[in-house]
Simulated assay, not measured.
Amino acid sequence: MSAATTARPAWPGKPKPVVSAAKAVAVVVILLLVAIPFWLVLATSISSDRQVMADGGWSLWPDRIDLHAYADVLNGGIIGHAILVSAMVTAIGTVLSLASTTLLAYALSRPNVLGGKPVLLAILFTFLFPAGMIPSFLIVTDLKLTGHLGALFLPVMINVFNLVVMRGFFQGIPEELYEAARLDGAGELRTLLRIVLPLSKAIIAVVGLYYAVAYWNDYFRAMLYLNNSSADQLPLSTVLRGYLTSTNAQSETGEAMLTQAPQKTIAAIVVMGVLPIAAAFPFLQRFFAKGVLTGAVKS
Results as ranks from 00 to 15, higher is better:
88 M>P: 12
104 L>S: 08
94 T>Q: 13
60 L>R: 04
245 T>M: 11
136 S>A: 08
276 P>R: 06
91 A>E: 03
28 V>Y: 08
282 P>S: 03
252 E>T: 13
46 I>N: 04
247 T>M: 15
59 S>T: 13
241 R>I: 14
62 P>C: 01
180 A>D: 10
42 L>R: 01
27 V>K: 02
163 L>E: 00
99 A>E: 09
164 V>R: 13
66 D>C: 00
133 M>C: 12
290 K>F: 13
226 L>K: 06
119 V>Y: 11
273 G>P: 00
60 L>N: 15
277 I>W: 00
154 L>T: 15
221 R>C: 01
190 R>P: 08
264 K>Q: 12
48 S>H: 03
280 A>H: 05
10 A>Y: 11
240 L>N: 03
283 F>W: 15
86 S>K: 04
124 L>Q: 06
70 Y>D: 07
25 V>G: 14
269 I>L: 03
235 P>H: 00
49 D>F: 05
51 Q>C: 08
39 W>Q: 12
142 D>I: 09
109 S>G: 09
167 R>K: 09
236 L>M: 06
262 P>L: 13
166 M>K: 13
111 P>G: 00
144 K>N: 13
116 G>L: 15
17 P>N: 12
121 L>G: 05
142 D>H: 07
202 A>K: 14
135 P>R: 06
197 L>D: 05
66 D>S: 02
70 Y>A: 02
130 P>D: 06
185 G>Y: 14
284 L>D: 04
36 I>H: 06
200 S>V: 08
226 L>A: 01
197 L>Y: 01
97 S>C: 15
95 V>D: 14
226 L>G: 05
190 R>M: 09
164 V>Y: 07
291 G>H: 08
172 G>L: 01
154 L>S: 02
258 L>H: 06
